[in-house]
Simulated scan of single mutants.
Amino acid sequence: MPKVNYRLNALVDARLGDGDHLAGLARVAALNGATLIQYRDKTNATRTMIEQARAIGAALADTGVPFVVNDRVDVALAAGANGVHLGRDDMDAAMARSIMGDTAIIGLTVKNEADAEAAIASPIDYACIGGVYETLSKHNPDPPVGLLGFARLRAALLAAKPDLPVGAIAGINAPRVAEVVAAGADGVAVISTIFAASDPAVATRELRACVDGALKEAAR
């Protein structure tokens, strides 16, 4: 049985605010339907990242929702996070597994066929394909894979790892959930759809309902 429920991965980006604010946003998302929280920070010093990650962990402690740290195995370990999400330029997933242990959650970004092959060969708990659409949340030198590209990469992963949860990321909002799930997604990863909304709690509930509905329809 998969270790990770990837229905709704809420990415708490450091650009959204300071540690206490980020922790509060993470808690709101977790209490309203997010199934995984990811802390992403591309700019702050390591000490600050650890402090913010610890604050997020404390805010989530009674929610039952796990959280992972983007890119940084050292920060994840120091903060007591549940795991780490790795990209192509980060630590090798097998090395991360050897350091973090079998109970850690390890996710991997997949952008192309080479990434898919790496994911198949790696001891990971989920993969996230994208960007599927254009996004303003992150500078991405790679063009969007689109729905057809997502479906192709998802099929390659499914053939080798049929139980691996696979999410979709980038430019995903409520109206797009049905089409990415129809293309094979087990869930979605978002930032602005939740955290740029006027009411993140409502936005989280609405997006989770869309994911649940789309998965139910896909299972028919």
Rank of each mutant, 00 (worst) to 15 (best):
A79C: 05
G17Q: 07
P123R: 11
R7Q: 14
P165K: 00
E117K: 15
C210M: 07
L16T: 12
P123M: 14
A151D: 01
V84C: 02
A10M: 09
A119K: 03
D89A: 15
L207H: 09
T46E: 11
G80D: 02
I169W: 00
L8H: 06
V4Y: 01
Y126M: 10
P143C: 12
R72M: 07
D62F: 01
T109I: 00
M91P: 01
V28I: 15
G107R: 07
L22T: 11
D18N: 09
D212M: 08
A81G: 00
A174W: 07
G24R: 08
F67T: 00
N70K: 02
A159P: 07
D90C: 09
R72A: 05
K42R: 14
R27V: 08
P2E: 06
N140I: 13
V75S: 02
P141M: 10
I194L: 15
L147W: 07
D142V: 09
E134A: 15
A183P: 09
A178W: 13
A168Q: 02
A168Y: 01
L164F: 08
G184V: 03
D18C: 05
A29M: 12
K3N: 08
A219S: 12
V180R: 02
A156R: 15
A34G: 03
T43R: 08
A201Y: 14
A30V: 05
G83R: 02
A151T: 10
I106P: 01
G80C: 05
M91N: 00
L86G: 00
L164P: 14
Y126N: 11
A114Y: 10
D62P: 04
A127G: 04
V188D: 03
A168W: 00
A78T: 07
R176I: 02
G130W: 01
A29G: 06
R220V: 09
L22Y: 12
N32Y: 06
S98T: 07
N44Q: 12
D71G: 11
L215E: 03
N173M: 01
G130N: 03
P165I: 00
R88H: 13
D102C: 00
A127H: 03
S198T: 14
G33Q: 11
V12P: 13
L16G: 06
D199R: 13
A119E: 01
A159V: 04
T109M: 00
A23K: 11
G149V: 02
G130C: 03
V166H: 05
R88L: 13
D92H: 12
A209C: 02
V65L: 04
L207W: 08
L164H: 12
G187R: 04
E217M: 09
C128N: 03
M1S: 13
K138R: 13
M1R: 09
A23T: 08
V180M: 06
L25W: 13
P144R: 04
E134S: 12
L25R: 10
I50V: 15
V75C: 04
L136M: 04
T135G: 01
S137N: 02
I105L: 14
V73D: 00
A58N: 11
L153W: 10
L136E: 15
A93R: 04
P123Q: 13
N5R: 12
G80W: 02
S192W: 13
